[in-house]
Structures are given as structure tokens and as C-alpha cells.
Computed example of a mutant assay.
Amino acid sequence: MELGGSMEQADTAWVLVATVLVFFMSLPGLALFYGGMVRSRNVISVFMQCYAVACVMAILWYLIGYSIAYGDANAVWGGVGKALLSGVTLDSNVGTLPEILFFAFQMMFAIITPALIIGAYAERVKFGFVIMFSGLWMILVYAPVAHWVWGGGFLSDGGIFGAVGVRDFAGGLVVHETAGIAALIIAIIIGPRLDRTRGPHNPGMVMIGAAMLWVGWLGFNGGSRLAADSSAAMAMTVTVMSAAAASLTWMFWETWKFGKFTLVGMVTGTISGLAAITPASGYVGPGYALMIGFVAGILCQETVYFLRDKLNVDDSLDVFAVHGAGGIFGSLMMAAVGAASWGVQLGGIAIIGVYTIAMTLVVVFFCKGVTGIRVDEATELEGLDTAVHGQRGYELNS
């Protein structure tokens, strides 16, 4: 492809880097973050699930996902016109970017969104269910919602809300609300783990994964500008500010309640701040980002306690509390600071939420009928690593 000038070249170079950063979030970032969170007998299972989901989503995005999300069939779904990248050549563009680069960048979002859901059912789910559910969910939930908000669908500008549609810069609704709600639905259906008494087996691994997610998130948010400009730089800056604030507020709030400064608590706060700033990262400055992160660190933590202690919902790795609640909160904060309309944001949240609940239920019960969902009690107590995958994460005698 012949690029017309330096700005086009700069945009392409930056989004190439951002694409790598977003993939880095899934592999190895999310895998390490989730792997450290579970007990040692299940670390291989989480690694397998994250890796396999990345592979399957990449292929499905090429086959049909990209077409559903970014085709131009109508305002509800993109159709099949771009299936298998039909019509996408080295000369086709999306804005100042080669379309194949836009495809690759968006593919990374399609990979990490269903991968986030893994945290809800970790340590007790069948591997076949993970693969089938993730694939169908990406096609039937993630891709249509991406089309509605980002692909010119009915929630975007000129849609059902008029000239100014739902504002979601990098995925507070498209990624975090959908994944968080799906996680909550599955956690309720599958039920609590048989043994919930032991915490993360490797806090250091959790911290390393969280740090990788934080670094990768600079591409997640900054790359969503699809340009190498000051707005992308601002998106990266506020991403750091919100995550830093949420890390500290989570840590101090946890210490005030329980008397300990925990590493896992602090880095979970990091992720809550990142989820909360994601939808707003292209619309607010550092001051508002600090405020969003400050509140998110407390709000998401209290959501964890409410679901776990009051409702007895075992969302194993707190996907809804951190990603769902954080993403929805950040989306509402844009209206609070005047960057979006309250009515439009609330309407978008409601439409996406209802659709996600309905379609997730359909996909879960379809997959349950085909593969089943939960492993048997003996397998769960032994651990998925040896019972399902025939390997251990740690050989104590080696």
C-alpha cells in the first residue's frame, strides 16, 4: 500500500505497536494474572484456556467476526460481506490506516474480551465448554455489540439516540460490560467452587501479569484513537493516572477494613482503574482520570465483597466486580463530567446489558447441552491440571 504522507505513516506505525501491546495483554499478561490467582493445582488449566481462546478467537475473527462487527449490512449487524476478509486488500483503508492493520488491531479486542470471562469459572469448568462458549459468545455477543457502538450501528452517532450516540472510547461497554455481565451469569449458573478457602497461590505471578496488563493497556486505550496524535498521548496519560489512583485507594481501603497491605489487592485495584478509565480515556484529562480511578478502587472492591459475601456468587477472579462494574462506572462518569449525555449512556448500558444477558444465557445452555459445563467433584478436588491436562504447574521433587 502506498501511504500518502508522514502522518499516515506515523498512524500506521503507532497502531502496529498498539496491536502488539493489546495482544501482550492476553498473552502473557492475562494468563499470568489469572494463573497466579488460582490454586497451584489449576494453573496449567488457566494457561491452557487463555492460550486456546486466543487461538480460536483469531481464526473466528477472520472467518466471520470482523465482518459482523465492521461490515456495512445494516445498523444491527455487519453481515457477511467481509467474511474471510473478502474485499480487504493491501490498498483498502480505514481512515489513515491500512484496513488489514485495523482488522488486526480489532482482532486483539475480540481475543481478550472472551478471555476475560475465564476468570469467572476458573478451577471448575470443562475445557470443551470454554472453547465452544467463547467462540459462540464472541460471534453472537461481542461482534454485534462492537458493530452497534464502533461499526456504525444503531448505538453510534446518527443512530437511535440522534446525532451523538453512545460514547465508548476503548471498550468500557463493548469489552468490559459485556464480559463482566457474561461472567456474572456463568458464575451464577455454574455455582460456587467446592473449596473456596485458599487464596491466590502465587501473588508474585499475579503482580507480573497485572503489570503486563497495565503496560499493554497503553496500546488498548492509546491505540483506539487510531492515530499518532495528542489525543492518543492523552489517552495513554489518563490510563496511567486512573490505574495509579485505583491501586492506592484499593490498597488503603482494604487495609482500613482488614489491617493488611496486600499485593494482590493493590494490583487488582490497578485493573479496576484501567477498566474504569477505558471508556473515558479519549474524553477526559488527568484530573478527571484521578477522580475516576480513586472511586473505582473503592467501588469495585465493595462490589467484590457484596457478590461474594452477601449474594454468595463465586465469580472466581472477580470479573464482574472489576471489569463489569468498572467499565459501567467509567461510562457513566463521562456523563457526570459532561463528556456525554446521561440519557444516551444509560440507554446504551441498558441495551447492551439486556442483550448480553439474553444471548449469554442462550449460549451457556446450548453449550451445556453439548459439552456440559462443570467437571465432576473428583476432578475439581484433584485439580484440573493433572485430571484434564495431564501436567502439573510445579514439580516439587525436580
Rank of each mutant, 00 (worst) to 15 (best):
D11N: 15
Q49M: 12
V313G: 05
M251C: 13
C55Q: 08
E123H: 11
C55E: 00
S341L: 11
T386K: 13
V215S: 02
F33I: 05
D229F: 12
A54H: 13
S281V: 14
T356K: 01
F103N: 06
G347L: 12
V149T: 06
E302H: 06
E99F: 14
P200F: 14
A321F: 02
A10M: 14
V215Y: 11
T178S: 05
A10R: 12
R374Q: 02
L384T: 09
N202I: 06
S331V: 13
M251N: 07
F129M: 08
T12M: 11
T255I: 01
I139D: 00
G5K: 03
F47W: 12
V53F: 07
R41L: 03
G219W: 12
L213K: 09
V295R: 01
L97M: 09
F161G: 08
I328P: 06
V240P: 01
G71R: 09
A276C: 08
A115L: 11
I208Q: 00
I111C: 10
G199S: 10
F366R: 05
C300D: 03
T249H: 10
I357N: 00
S281G: 07
L332F: 15
T113F: 02
V38H: 02
R308W: 03
Y305F: 15
I271S: 00
G81N: 11
D157Y: 05
V145T: 05
L361I: 11
I349E: 00
Y51H: 14
G287R: 05
V80G: 01
A69V: 06
P28V: 01
L226M: 15
F320A: 07
A58I: 15
M251K: 08
D195W: 00
F127M: 03
F103T: 11
V125T: 15
G372L: 04
I100D: 00
W256G: 13
M107L: 13
V149S: 05
A187H: 06
Y305E: 09
V141A: 01
D11L: 08
T356R: 02
N93L: 14
F258C: 09
L290F: 15
A210I: 11
A275D: 04
L90R: 10
I373T: 14
M334S: 08
F127Y: 14
V125W: 00
M132G: 14
S224Q: 08
D157R: 03
G285E: 12
L60V: 14
F154L: 10
N74I: 06
M333W: 13
V130Y: 00
G119A: 05
M108L: 11
I298F: 07
R41N: 09
L332H: 08
N202A: 11
A321I: 09
F258N: 14
S40A: 13
C367H: 04
P286I: 15
F161A: 10
M359H: 05
Q345I: 11
V344N: 02
G330P: 10
I277S: 02
W14Q: 03
N42H: 09
F320I: 03
I298A: 12
E380W: 03
D385W: 08
M138Y: 06
E123V: 15
I271W: 00
L226I: 13
M37N: 10
V215P: 01
A325G: 02
S86K: 13
F24P: 04
C55S: 15
L140Y: 08
I118V: 15
M205C: 06
S398N: 07
N312T: 09
R225M: 12
I111T: 11
Y51Q: 12
A104T: 14
